[in-house]
Amino acid sequence: MYNKKTTLALAGFVGLALSGIAGAADMHTQVIAATCMSCHGPGGNSVGAAPGIAGISQDRFVKAMQDYKTGKRPGTVMLKLAGGYTDAEIEAMGAYFATLK
């Protein structure tokens, strides 16, 4: 049994949790982020010459991706890839990579 206070707390949690539990939205980002790891290393920690991207700030991630998209930032393969993602996906990936260590 839950008292009123717990119910309210849970209701708040429901709102937060739905974004995570909906599966599609959450996993959509995680799968894209996982595909980045093929070149940027497991968990975004590179073991080669490519830069690691774990733990970088969302702002830095988003700016880099947007600058690759427009060609403002010099680069190699990222110039071909960045344009394939939506702004929302780039924001979400940035938020996710910021949480990784």
């Binding site: 790891m37 093929s38 070149c39 290393g41 497991p42 590179s46 080669g48 490519a50």
Partner: peptide, 10 residues
Amino acid sequence: ESWAENIWAD
């Protein structure tokens, strides 16, 4: 070469 090292590690 970096690609190879990272994808094998992943």
